[in-house]
Amino acid sequence: MLSLQHISKYYQVGGNKNIILNNISLEVDEGEFISIMGPSGSGKSTLLNIIGMLDEPNEGYHYFMGQAVHQLKEKQRSALYKRYIGFVFQAYHLIDELTVYENIETPLIYQDVKGSERKAMVADMLDRFQIVGKKDLFPAQLSGGQQQLVGIARALIASPKLILADEPTGNLNSKQGEDIMELFRKLNKEDGVTIIQVTHSEKNAEYGTRIINLLDGKIESSRKF
């Protein structure tokens, strides 16, 4: 479903090139659950952002769902990404001024889903994550684990084919982290959602079907289970 070929990303700092990603090539098939690991500064998040089209590489080719992303215009890219990709952040990044319900609903608004349909979909999602009782609370009134649950619910609401998670458990305790990972595994196995996560934790990485190790912007190793 996804193919990166010879992707490089660098910043010009003074006269020096600060290389973040160095000639990375990567194929991802539908139904995979990939964990990206590596020390700080190895380019994990940048890679994830490029896959998620939040960031653009300086060089290389990027294909997603059969389309050449590097040739698309901003608008088409946005359309493609709205349809297929959901994002989960380490810091949850819920909108503070919106309730749980409204946070989950927002992506649907951007996809012009009708009001009645939205209602049904959000209700469904609240049900599935068992947070119906919390739907009118604001993010500040929730624990970190609950906030991340809402974050994932928001990422899933538009039924994406691919979930990108940037250290989804980084701000959570180990019990909460395990719950989230179990949820990811279930999504991957039962719903066939492709997941790519960035993580520091060996244990969380093992929930995946493949582990990719990055070092200094290069793929150091790739293991499949």
Partner: peptide
């Protein structure tokens, strides 16, 4: 700013 970032990440275009 954070709100803008989140909205963009969950599919908002600049126009929106």
């Amino acid at each position: 700013a954070r709100e803008v970032g989140v909205r963009k990440a969950i599919g908002s275009q600049r126009r929106d």
